[in-house]
């Protein structure tokens, strides 16, 4: 187990390093932040001071060396936009995203597994057709469009829910509902496919022949074996959400990490972009470890 963890950590660290190098140099090619942060009529002297203050005058290589050096002391640099440590800004936003992703993924996984398993139990039946139809539509719908339609319907016309922002519990309903739809469609289809395979396997037939009632057969016997591919898809979807649901967050004015990243890139707030990437990468690394442990729990043949 320890060897496995080390190997995974090294692999993740290497790809994170590549990512940091790329983003560091690419983002600095987008232009000089001075033009964005100082007024148009700022004097040359003021511009020079601003560049010196944020270390933008040194050659890129020197800037990069300094950045990596600071990283080793866990200093992620300061946000130009907010004049605060970048890490604080990111962690604040990440809490929002994490909560949103967690609630959504728990709901999605539960709903998709239950409906997918029931659909697979009677392939071609009415329930299966309805579930397949809706999951296909869910998997095909662009989230920004669903968000817009939902706002028009529920916020503007019916006036039930707030259009954007945060504050009350009501503000959470639309973002969660919109984020729910696509993963629900995708995961349901995987559950259904994998359960059809599991339900046609000999041990399930034996259980049925012994007279075990249908529900335990679905949810105890078949589901455990059918879960492995499902967990992979759930992991993929959760990783996507941890990266920040950029589109949904910006439509609903949700202060999550996806919106933060986009805003920071557009405002050339480089330290925040890099810190956000590292925080989410670390979260995704932890989640992948959890998923590997889940594999081993579900299938005792898997050992690391």
């Amino acid at each position: 187990m320890r060897k496995f963890l080390t190997r995974r950590a090294v692999a993740s660290a290497v790809s994170l390093l590549v990512l940091i190098v790329m983003v560091f140099f690419l983002s600095r090619l987008t232009g000089d932040p001075t033009q964005l942060y100082l007024p148009v009529d700022a004097s040359l002297e003021a511009r020079e001071n601003f560049r010196n203050l944020h270390g933008l005058n040194d050659p890129l290589i020197v800037q990069f060396g300094r950045y990596v050096g600071d990283l080793l002391t866990l200093d992620f640099g300061d946000s130009i936009r907010k004049s605060r440590p970048a890490l604080d800004v990111v962690i604040e936003a990440f809490k929002w995203t994490l909560t949103l992703a967690l609630i959504t993924m728990v709901l999605v996984s539960f709903a998709a597994i239950v409906f997918g398993a029931l659909a697979a139990f009677n392939v071609g039946g009415v329930f299966d057709r309805i579930a397949t139809f809706f999951s296909l539509i869910g998997a095909s719908a662009p989230d920004f469009w669903i968000a817009i339609v939902a706002i028009v319907l529920f916020s503007v016309n019916l006036g039930w829910l707030p259009t954007s922002g945060t504050g009350t519990l009501w503000h959470w309903i639309l973002p969660i509902a919109v984020l729910f739809i696509r993963p629900f469609g995708l995961i349901l289809q995987v559950v259904r496919g994998s359960m059809i395979t599991a339900l046609s396997s000999p041990y399930v037939k034996t259980a049925r022949a012994k007279g075990v009632r249908p529900r335990p057969v679905i949810f105890v016997h078949a589901l455990r074996n059918g879960m492995l591919p499902v967990i992979t898809v759930i992991g993929d979807q959760a990783a996507g959400m941890l990266n920040g649901a950029v589109v949904v967050e910006s439509i609903f004015g949700f202060p999550g990490v996806g919106k933060l990243m986009i805003d920071s890139i557009l405002q050339r707030d480089f330290a925040v972009v890099l810190a956000a990437i590292m925080v989410t990468a670390f979260a995704i690394f932890l989640m992948n470890i959890l998923i590997d442990i889940a594999y081993a729990v579900l299938d005792p043949r898997i050992r690391y």
């Binding site: 692999a11 993740s12 790809s15 994170l16 590549v18 990512l19 983003v23 690419l26 983002s27 090619l29 987008t30 990266n243 920040g244 950029v246 990243m261 986009i262 890139i265 557009l266 990437i277 989410t280 990468a281 995704i284």
Partner: peptide, 19 residues
């Protein structure tokens, strides 16, 4: 492939297209 997969693809697109 692993390196590309570990990129947040939308973010990469934003950076490249902005540049």
């Amino acid at each position: 492939a692993d390196v590309i997969m570990s990129f947040p693809s939308l973010l990469l697109a934003v950076i490249v297209l902005y540049m």
